[in-house]
């Protein structure tokens, strides 16, 4: 997995909390910085794709690691 600037642990949270928390965390980053999100909500896989598509941020990676979903989002 490549580098990141900040981590958001959204484990145990359900829709729409992972997205809302990610939005908040991204607001603290500068353009080009990367947010790593860890989630357990299976719905988050499609939701983070849709989030990236609609906000212009880039979903660099979307992986599953030991039962958790891990996303790398690069701020636009």
């Amino acid at each position: 997995m490549s580098g990141f600037d900040q981590v958001l642990d959204a484990s145990g949270l359900n829709c729409p909390l992972p997205i809302l928390r990610a939005k908040k965390s991204l607001a603290e980053l500068k353009s080009g910085q990367v947010l790593k999100v860890v989630a357990t909500d299976p719905g988050s896989v499609k939701d983070f794709q849709a989030f990236a598509k609609q906000t212009g941020n880039t979903l660099v990676e979307s992986n599953q690691e030991s039962g958790k979903f891990v996303f790398l989002i690069k701020k636009a």
Binding site: C15, P16, I19, L20, K23, F51, T55
Partner: peptide, 11 residues
């Protein structure tokens, strides 16, 4: 509340 908060997060 779910749809409105998410929509706001999407801009």
């Amino acid at each position: 509340f779910i749809l409105s908060s998410t929509a706001a997060a999407l801009g």
